[in-house]
Design a protein around this nucleic acid. Sequence first.
DNA 1: GTCGTTGCAAAGCGTTTGCAGCCTA
DNA 2: TAGGCTGCAAACGCTTTGCAACGAC
Lengths: 123, 123
Amino acid sequence: MAERNTRQKRAIQAVLATAEAPLSVRDILLAARRDVPSLSQGTVYRVLKALTAKGRVAIVQLPGEVPLYEVAGKSHHHFFRCRKCDHMYEIEGCSKVLRHLVPDEFQLEDHEIFLFGLCPVCR
Amino acid sequence: MAERNTRQKRAIQAVLATAEAPLSVRDILLAARRDVPSLSQGTVYRVLKALTAKGRVAIVQLPGEVPLYEVAGKSHHHFFRCRKCDHMYEIEGCSKVLRHLVPDEFQLEDHEIFLFGLCPVCR
DNA sequence: GTCGTTGCAAAGCGTTTGCAGCCTA
DNA sequence: TAGGCTGCAAACGCTTTGCAACGAC
């Protein structure tokens, strides 16, 4: 019943903790294998699923792309994706004006915003 | 070279044209088979891909779900998804305030907004 | 020693694609 | 009749899962 603290879990969480941008399963697998070379894909999926269920990891799902993972608990934010270099920038804060988009009869609980364009470097 | 006007394409476009909400590939396949029973999944994918490339169809990609398709050319809008009945409502208009979310050095070109909550019926 | 966890490989699911025959123009 | 289009089925990429061995406690 008690959850166990394994090398695999520690390696995966360490990778997520030190990442500066959301990572794909492949990214996580390759990075974590530097600590635990025998790490398998299946384990990465299982550990991520468990961490997500516990609310310790958040999924960043861009339209038409594979899901990315980041540590949860950061302040509410969204992402800006540069269409040239593909880099993802975190956008802090979030417009209160969203509430006015929907009629009052709707009860707005959550939202996702993805911004696309050119970043300062690529302009 | 010249594109041909087949029963399959007509059936698929008719389904999209009369749909009141974005449809999945499965939805489209089942509906279009009422006109063309022999219609195959592969053809649906190919026709949708072609229509999308020509800008006649738009993809609605909700995080973690299969893509949905709708006729393009509607006025700019986003979606509100009821987390209880799963119905999707179109939200007209879109906040200009988005531009203020990103620093001036970023060149904002496009965006996606998904709203989640309870619709008037389910509240 | 127990039993949660892992690696492996097979299976699952949505989507793409090669190919031979079909049918629109 | 030409060649774009279709149905079929195999292949593909990502994710899940069954199972026996492993290892944290």
